[in-house]
Amino acid sequence: MSTTNGEINKMMIILSKATLENVYAAFVLANGARSEGIEAEIFFTFFGLEAVQKNKNEKLHVATVGNPAMHIPTMIGGLPGMEAAATYIMKKEMEKVDMPEIPEFLDILKCSGVKMWACKLAVDMFHLKREDLVDEVDDIITVGDFYTKAKGEGVHMLFI
């Protein structure tokens, strides 16, 4: 429970997806928290781990299937190359609003003091090792460890 009169002291963000729009949502929220003087930590779990995997995190895509906001028929969205094309267009638009690419964004988050954790269970499940993850990741921890880090007043937890 918060006794800080509603003030947010820390955002604990859990990222479980690797579609570009979800990863950016998590990163923008974490970065925005830091620039407001709010602490921020991100727990990368399940597919969210792709955002911190070397060689993978540069190739994340937006979802063109199962995403009604794309305004294209699902069957067309499933055609080969559609995801890449939509991602290309989105990345161009993102650059226009000064949105960095994922690897640069990770560096910004790290330099801004965002703590980044990889979920141990997901790391084990995908047969990953520490060296498969980018240097910005602070450690591989359990969900219990993450809850311990969430202790304190004015801490909010967000699942993406």
Binding site: N31, R34, E36, G37, D98, P100, I108, C111, S112, G113
Partner: peptide, 22 residues
């Protein structure tokens, strides 16, 4: 923050250490 980091005047880490919290 990104532009400040690319300014060549200060990097993001030092920017946060010069003006801690926000």
């Amino acid at each position: 923050i990104r532009k400040i980091g690319k300014s060549g005047v200060v990097d993001i880490k030092e920017f946060y250490s010069l003006f801690p919290t926000a």
